[in-house]
Design a protein around this nucleic acid. Structure first.
Length: 329
DNA sequence: AAACGAAACAACCGCAAACAA
DNA sequence: CTTGTTTGCGGTTGTTTCGTT
């Protein structure tokens, strides 16, 4: 017994909507409302799946939608809410009049996530990477550190690779301050091609993963403290640096009690080495949905979180005391 | 001007909750 | 209470647009 399809696949058009289709759908809904999406395409004379019509309406045609760029305050709201509820896009969109969950999701994935990563903040936990490292170092038995590092790097390797290679290409070749306020010098040989850089970074990551627990943790450094392989040396434990570079977002210090993950830690980790069973504690929580029984319980918890966050009128509570993300204007 | 890659946006898919009969 | 259907949601994929070489 399979699931009943929402429509006949054969006679259904897919892909981009034409203005005529938009008109048909809009005028039909204006007259008859949005009851029974399965019947709407048929009655409106559209060769579309009801689901497709619903999506088109809710994400694009609805008259109350905003279509412009996200404002600073909207971005702040998204980051703040995401730090509390995670990838609950509909919940977040509910606090942004005129924005859809798809809008918010796309904006997060294409802009905000990278923005945070670029500032050294883990977009999953909203903590600076330095704090994550420190937590791992202090709370985990040394023998597990290497495995956790591997899992973490697996989760973020693509983003790290992207950022590192991009940054490298952007830095000046004379090794002076790049002028972003970080005082971070970067020396790059002009003849060094990008592919070589990528290979070096990959090698560095691999070494970090392979490194036995208890050995020198100063990744990328040779015994004399000089960078090996020409890789940059970045202090990942410098909160002052973080505050300096955080011209838009500022981390005000850990707020999770006793190393507990935030309420939203079911956010996705799609890293290839993250298998859900092992890995970091967060990674374990992320995959709780995979178990049906646990999934029900997780959903129950989720609903409690929802109920706690929003009043009966759906208005967001004042979260300023609970949030770890503050904004500098 | 053309080719290529990255970013942004739009749409689809499958799952599960909610609802109605 | 059970079963079938609809709706909402989040993840993913496909397409278009923009910027760079």
């Amino acid at each position: 017994m399979g699931r009943i399809p929402c429509c006949e696949k054969d006679n259904v058009k897919r892909g981009q909507w034409t203005p005529e289709e938009d008109n048909k759908l809009s005028s039909y809904i204006a007259q008859h409302g949005t009851r029974n999406w399965r019947l709407i395409p048929k009655n409106a004379g559209l060769q579309r799946c009801g689901k497709s019509c619903r999506l088109r309406w809710t994400n694009y045609l609805r008259p109350d939608l905003k279509h412009g760029v996200f404002s600073d305050s909207e971005e702040q709201t998204i980051v703040k809410l995401h730090s509390v509820v995670g990838n609950r896009w509909s919940l977040i969109a509910g606090q942004l009049p005129g924005r859809t969950d798809n809008d918010v999701k796309n904006h997060w994935n294409t802009k905000l996530k990278k923005k945070l990563l670029g500032k050294g903040i883990d977009p999953v936990t909203h903590k600076p990477f330095s704090h994550l490292m420190a937590e791992i170092a202090t709370t985990v038995p040394p023998l597990q550190v290497a495995h956790l590092a591997e899992a973490a790097l697996g989760c973020f390797k693509d983003e790290m690779l992207h950022l590192l290679t991009k940054k490298r290409a952007d830095f000046p070749a004379n090794g002076t301050d790049v002028g972003d306020g970080t005082g971070f010098p970067y020396a790059m040989s002009p003849v060094e091609d990008k592919e070589e850089t990528v290979q070096k970074i990959k090698l560095g990551l691999s070494r970090a993963i392979m490194q036995e627990p208890g050995t020198d943790k100063s990744w990328g450094l040779m015994e004399n403290g000089e960078p090996s392989d020409g890789l940059p040396v970045v202090s990942m434990c410098d909160d002052d640096l973080y505050r300096t570079i955080g011209d838009e977002f500022r981390y005000e210090g850990p707020s999770y009690a006793n190393g507990e993950g935030s309420a939203w830690s079911q956010s996705m980790c799609t890293g290839s080495t993250c298998t859900g069973g092992g890995g970091t504690p967060d990674c374990h929580v992320l995959h709780e949905k995979h178990s049906d029984d646990e999934g029900v319980e997780a959903e129950g918890k989720r609903r409690k979180i929802d109920a706690g966050l929003f009043g009966s009128d759906g208005v967001l509570w004042d979260l300023s005391d609970d949030l770890m993300m503050n904004h500098i204007v």
